[in-house]
Design a binder for these strands. Structure first.
Lengths: 345, 345
DNA sequence: CGCATCGATGGAAACGTTTACAGTCTGTGT
DNA sequence: ACACAGACTGTAAACGTTTCCATCGATGCG
């Protein structure tokens, strides 16, 4: 009984109709009520299901949008993927996810794979491909980028308004009374943009920038940078380019016996799902991944219509939680004052 | 210049060969060196790329394994997906990910979609579909389950050895000297299995089970259950059915002014990526998601060969971190109480 | 010298659809 | 009674591959 899947021919025979009529019935063409009824029962009896591969071959479309994502384990990427699915769903389309693992070669392969599958569009998240390599790889397929990690060219793109987020974070610390604010910077494109925005925000407030330390976009990177940073005098607050780095900072602070936020305020960036469960809960800049994914999906599906919106900035929001507060005592604070006073156990 | 993609015919014309020869050259069949060279240059000149849709139509295979995953934002699911990709990669295949969002209807649709795409196999993660609905949906396609959330039937399946993990966790607390150990239980299938394993482990140690509270598999669920549990007398340790619930517990403990692990020890389950960054770092049972994904992928690809391994249990490992320690209260853990403790070090 | 063998090639038939086109009815206005 | 519209329906040609089969020289062997 494990016969191979029934085809449209089987349905046609069963329903005494031609395959053309069956096809029309299935796709909402003009068919007589009688034929439609026969076909429907035949479909049900046989358990027929359309073969989308064959269909794609003749129509030239697949109903698929290819998504290449750096890493599925990043909660932010997962949110973006979800956003893409949202808008694809309502159009009866689907996403096909492929991961490059931050390797440009894998990214190129992923694009090839997807195009071989006739995807109707491509959403590239955090793409590192140089403009020419990219153009060659995607050829005719419509493309939209999210938070592209490479130089811009004419392709439509959605990108966080990093500067606005950083400004909000720095303002928040300034408003709380901090004057000497350090920064832990990332090394990728958005890391650099955030660092520049930080410098600009400090300058705007008429303040000298605090110490800046760069590191990998990871907990370890953040911790290492924090070690260097917390050695400096007078720093009462630190703004991190990512939440992951912020947890590294939290650890380093704890090791040095610094209380957060009393001795040092911490602000992160991204608002990863678990940021609120840290101790203390992390004040951070929320990156609306799902919205960004939605926007990108719309962009890629509608790019032919208005070709004049190459870059779309979405606004982040500051989420104030427990890791930031007013400086306790500006002139006494600092590692020197409390050195060697770890209070735990 | 935006001509449509070159086909194998174009290559054949350009290389003065028949399409059959080109196809053979591309797929490693027998071709003369001269022809091969001509074809290769033609491919390069034209930028030809095989159309996998057409290919799939004739071969009946797609090189794709469909993966239906409850939710991309769960780090554990992402790890499993990664594991699947690992083994697919080394076979030149790819994963096609689709999410049901814990809705059985969406799960069924996802399976239909995937089968319409002619996937060569299906990996279902946390499937909730009843056996008959499932059987109807997958028809002839090979299937493997991961941590199926429904009754078993004959389908190959990989599943965590929940009982072993729970036993390790409970033993760990017992060895530390705890006697009154509470449990926060989950409601899904694995939650129930873990609860039963907890009860068994307590019985095995000759102890009465501590209070058990069930809740949703979320931070809020854990927090609510913890509120009920921490009111009880004498509880010096709590074992949670998941890390997410454990952070809820941590919060509830903090609110009540209970120190962890001094007043109450906490052990989680899963070892989600951020468990080590909590404060204190969470002692937990690590679920090797990536390995489970790998195992499932192998299972689905090789199921015809040995049909006799329907259920494969993978072993979790206990990761001891800062959230668990000996009970502080001296008179509860006197020598008498310790007498029955199986101490293995 | 004839015959089987072999390596390389091309022709053509699939694979399961959609869709342009050409029919076949039935009813209607003249 | 006739043409003609209109509503349905069927035939057949695509879509871009793989693969079976036949063909064709050339080579080796008896």
């Amino acid at each position: 009984m494990s016969r191979s899947r029934p085809t449209i021919h089987d349905v046609a025979r069963e329903a005494r109709a031609s395959i053309a009529t069956v096809s029309r019935a299935l796709n909402g063409g003009v068919v007589s009520a009688a034929a439609l009824a026969r076909i429907e029962t035949a479909v049900a009896r046989l358990g027929y299901r359309r073969n989308d591969v064959a269909r794609g071959l003749v129509t030239g479309r697949s109903g698929l949008v290819g998504v290449v994502v750096p890493d599925l384990m990043g909660p932010l990427y997962a949110q973006m993927a979800r956003g893409i699915e949202d808008v694809l769903d309502e159009r009866g389309m689907h996403a096909m996810l492929v991961t490059d693992h931050l390797e440009p070669a894998a990214e190129r392969r992923a694009i090839e794979l997807l195009r071989g599958r006739q995807v109707d569009g491509l959403v590239l998240i955090g793409s590192r491909l140089p403009a020419d390599a990219l153009r060659a790889a995607v050829a005719g397929t419509p493309v939209a980028h999210v938070q592209r990690d490479g130089p811009d060219d004419g392709d439509p793109q959605v990108r966080l308004d990093d500067a606005a987020g950083v400004r909000a974070a720095v303002r928040h610390l300034l408003d709380a009374g901090h004057r000497r604010i350090g920064h832990i910077a990332g090394t990728r494109r958005d890391g650099l943009e955030r660092r520049d925005a930080y410098l600009a925000a400090m300058a705007e407030a008429g303040l000298e920038p605090g110490p800046v330390e760069a590191g990998e976009f990871t907990e370890e990177g953040g911790e290492a940078a924090a070690e260097r940073l917390l050695g400096q005098r007078d720093v009462t607050a630190v703004f991190c380019a990512s939440d992951r780095m912020a947890v590294g900072l939290l650890h380093a602070a704890r090791r040095r016996g610094l209380a957060v936020p009393d001795d040092v305020s911490v602000v992160g960036f991204d608002d990863l799902t678990w940021a609120r469960y840290l101790h203390p809960p992390l004040t951070t800049v929320r990156q609306p991944g799902r919205d960004m994914g939605r926007a990108a999906a719309r962009l890629v599906l509608e790019s032919p219509f208005d070709a004049a919106v190459p870059i779309l900035r979405v606004a982040p929001t500051l989420v104030v939680r427990g890791s930031s507060g007013p400086p306790s005592d500006p002139h006494v604070t600092g590692p020197a004052a409390r050195a060697g006073a770890p209070s735990r156990r």
